[in-house]
Design a protein around this nucleic acid. Structure first.
Lengths: 135, 135
DNA sequence: ATATTACAGACTCGTAAAGTCTTTTATTAT
DNA sequence: ATAATAAAAGACTTTACGAGTCTGTAATAT
């Protein structure tokens, strides 16, 4: 089963965000460094990073001494934000069979999904770092 | 994005279980009837049903007047049980990059997933029917 | 014996993730 | 200016798996 699984890209994105947050972002970090840590090709990772840039949570700088850095307000970026940026915002479950106006099964599936999202909305990269440093 | 989505099979399974529960199961229901309702081929649906049989939540009877019916104790079958039967029990997220013994990202993802499962464990087909009849 | 119905397995098809390669664009250093 | 650096864009390949078909076999009632 490959469905009902986060893509690898999401994993890369989460780790990249954590890495950027940890490297106290006075200077941007090049994709080579980020890619090396996660053992993934720079070109592939750059495509993922571009998505994060377009969502406004990462800033990019071309040219020498360029690279990626977190944008202002990054402390409030949640896991859900990052996941949405990569996986999209669509629901895990759609009842295609259209039988009646409201499918009760759909409804149950949706509320369960919202429980997970609620948790992911509360978890932030910043919170993760706080947890790392206090222990 | 096709990942991070329930398979269609899960949708079929859930609706089939509901249908079986509604047809007060004195006699088993043939796969043709079940398939017709959901506009899916009988042969394909039978493969899904076989999985449910193997998990012990559905009984099957070959031959004339055969078909499928719910097993005893079906009232306690949860959404999660059905989902597990089709999608498998593996986690939505695995941090493949092995950096240190415990990945904090993995931990967050897992607990969020458990929130969803907790809800799906409480929701039953029987509960759904109760909701339908009381309104 | 025959009709009916579930089970099993091999098979096709389409699509999307995962990743590569090449080119272009933007920025800095010299 | 120009060369070097680094991100962005896009076409392309590969691979895997969901989704579904087809064929045949096993079991059971009439």
């Amino acid at each position: 089963m490959k469905t009902l699984k986060y893509s690898k890209a999401t994993n890369y994105a989460l780790h990249t965000m954590l890495h950027l947050a940890l490297s106290n972002s006075t200077k941007p970090v090049g994709v080579q460094i980020l890619a090396e840590q996660q053992k993934v090709s720079p070109t592939y990772l750059s495509k993922i990073l571009t998505k994060l840039v377009k969502e406004g949570m990462v800033a990019s700088a071309s040219g020498a001494n360029g690279g990626y850095s977190l944008t202002k307000g990054w402390e409030s970026i949640s896991f859900l934000d990052i996941i949405y940026a990569i996986e999209g915002k669509s629901s895990l479950f759609d009842c295609d069979l259209n039988h009646g106006p409201e499918c009760l099964i759909q409804k149950v599936m949706l509320t369960s999904e919202e429980k997970m999202e609620e948790e992911l909305r509360q978890q932030t990269i910043a919170g993760l770092i706080a947890e790392m440093t206090t222990t």
